[in-house]
């Protein structure tokens, strides 16, 4: 799959996918979108990079690390990072669900705040659901990328 066509296409569409994923993520609590869909879309961007440039590209090409080609994929540092992302994301989602209890509200209660007079945007909605959504986003990205890179290597 690592053809010139694939690589050129990947260069063009990966940034677009990531931007769309981020915008879907921020829309989530009012419109279709959210942590799950944003996360899945982000993962597809990574999948395209993997397909176009190979499994080691992230570490060697972007992070500038040395990689032994023959080693266990699940020991990769980047895979360990995915796993940590999963764990931290889950912890964040749980913590954001528990936070309302401190204010005497039920588990998972959400609220929002309107910021007026913000430059360019004029008004900006800051929703507490974003914290939970970000947790979900991390779980999805971390989980799917772990599966993708470990199973992909086999």
């Amino acid at each position: 799959m690592t053809t010139v066509i694939m690589r050129t296409t990947a260069r063009a569409i990966v940034p677009i996918i990531l931007v769309v994923a981020i915008s879907l993520f921020f829309d989530g609590h009012n419109l279709p979108g959210g942590g799950f869909i944003g996360g899945v879309l982000t993962t597809t961007a990574f999948a395209i990079v993997y397909m176009g440039f190979g499994l080691d590209f992230l570490e060697r090409g972007i992070l500038g690390r040395d990689v032994d080609p023959g080693k266990e994929p699940s020991r990769d540092r980047v895979v360990l990072a995915y796993r940590r992302l999963f764990a931290y994301g889950f912890a964040l989602a749980v913590a954001s669900g528990l936070a309302p209890l401190l204010f005497g509200k039920p588990f998972l209660t959400q609220t929002f705040e309107m910021l007026e007079g913000v430059p360019i945007y004029d008004h900006l909605e800051v929703a507490s659901a974003l914290a939970f959504d970000f947790g979900v986003y991390c779980v999805v990205v971390g989980g799917l990328l772990t599966i993708l890179s470990v199973v992909g290597a086999e």
Binding site: F90, A91, V94, A95, F107
Partner: peptide, 21 residues
């Protein structure tokens, strides 16, 4: 609040054990 207490305990334990992998 008691109703949800067992679920919250398990959730926190799951998150804790994940972080302490």
């Amino acid at each position: 609040t008691l109703v949800i207490a067992p679920m919250l305990v398990v959730l926190v334990a799951a998150a804790g054990t994940l972080l302490l992998g």
